[in-house]
């Protein structure tokens, strides 16, 4: 059934001697060149070269269909900008909270019949504490004057037989006593003083603000997680379409010996570019939003005699955002590639 040709070196997978009576240069390339193809450093160079060409080519491919690419970038940008903007808002509130907390003071009400020199001694003693920055003494008469001026109850107060107000020491905590716990400790220790009737600090809003911050952070994190999944799926779907569009090319590449990694590479870079482009666009969106809001916010802050100003993301965070977004795109591409590339096999 089968016929066998005499063949001297059938076991070797190399080219047979070329001559066979013909002196024409008929092979595709001269024989000597085959030696160079096994050099490892060449392979490595060429591998790195293929990475950079693929990176550039896939970006160029995206820019050839600008409208379509812009749509994907916008989808990614919105999904990235939303949690990022909330994060920025949160850190601004936090910043604002710190500046309020700085003004949080403890009002120390001195016993009614305390002698003035005892009050001065107390004031000096409190000032000596390491967790106290300043102590301001408000004498009863001065307090009554102020109350009369701001309350509008001047006539009523004038009718009082004697000043019902005690001496008050306004204690401003030092920086190290600023935490909610620190304030609580300070307040407790102040109340131990014999001369002190009551030490009052509006703790509630400080801890409430902190709890709200924690809640806000978690919400932002959850939202970011959900939207990240959204980005993964959106980019995965875009890459799936790209794979379908380049089906012929994938088949040919596989037929002429392209490895899975080789076939995968352009799509992974495409995903990376979608992600990073979306991240950059998100930064632009956020910068626009910040610019749009910063005017009114500054005006509002001025009305409250505050020098508070809106803070953006900052360079490091911005870079992180773009890289993270790129990573998401790359992962999304992996999802699509893992699912759809193996299905395209030459038949």
């Amino acid at each position: 059934m089968s016929r066998r040709r005499p063949s001297g070196n059938s076991a070797t997978f190399v080219r047979a001697p070329s001559a066979r009576g013909s002196t024409r240069k008929v092979a595709a390339a001269p024989q000597g060149a085959s030696r160079s193809k096994t050099r490892v450093s060449d392979r490595l160079d060429s591998w790195a070269g293929h990475h950079s060409t693929t990176a550039v080519e896939s970006l160029a491919r995206l820019l050839r269909t600008p409208l379509q690419s812009l749509l994907t970038w916008l989808v990614v940008a919105v999904a990235v900008a939303l949690p990022a903007a909330l994060y920025v808002a949160l850190s601004n509130v936090q910043h604002l909270g710190y500046s309020w907390q700085e003004s949080s003071q403890v009002s120390v009400f001195v016993q009614r019949d305390a002698r003035p020199d005892a009050v001065s001694a107390l004031q000096a003693r409190l000032l000596a504490r390491p967790d106290v920055a300043t102590v301001e003494h408000v004498a009863p008469d001065a307090a009554l004057e102020e109350f009369k001026r701001y309350s509008g109850l001047g006539r009523v107060i004038d009718g009082l037989e004697r000043n019902p107000l005690p001496d008050v020491l306004l204690v401003m905590p030092a920086a190290n006593g600023l935490s909610a716990e620190g304030l609580q400790t300070l307040q407790g220790e102040l109340e131990q003083e014999a001369l002190v009737a009551e030490a009052r600090v509006d703790m509630a809003w400080v801890s409430r603000l902190q709890q709200l911050m924690h809640l806000g952070q978690r919400l932002v994190l959850a939202l970011a997680g959900l939207l990240a999944v959204g980005v993964l799926l959106a980019i995965g779907n875009t890459i799936r379409l790209a794979i379908e569009n380049r089906r012929d090319e994938i088949l040919v590449v596989k037929l002429v010996g392209g490895t899975d990694a080789f076939v995968r590479r352009p799509f992974l870079y495409t995903g990376l570019w979608y992600g990073m482009g979306g991240g950059l666009l998100a930064l632009v969106l956020m910068a626009l939003g910040l610019w749009w809001l910063s005017g009114p916010v500054a005006y509002l802050a001025d009305l409250y005699q505050s020098d508070f100003r809106l803070q953006g993301l900052g360079w490091t965070r911005s870079l992180q955002l773009v890289l993270l977004s790129g990573l998401l795109g790359w992962l999304g591409a992996w999802l699509a590639v893992a699912r759809h590339l193996s299905a395209i096999e030459p038949r």
Binding site: A27, A28, A29, A33, K37, D42, H50, G257
Partner: peptide, 24 residues
């Protein structure tokens, strides 16, 4: 050039071989 790029040849080598094949 596609099979050569896949096999990881240097660009100069790719050019030479492709032209030899096209010449043929």
């Amino acid at each position: 050039a596609l099979p050569l790029q896949i096999a990881g040849y240097q660009p100069a080598e790719v050019g030479r071989r492709v032209r030899a094949a096209l010449d043929k």
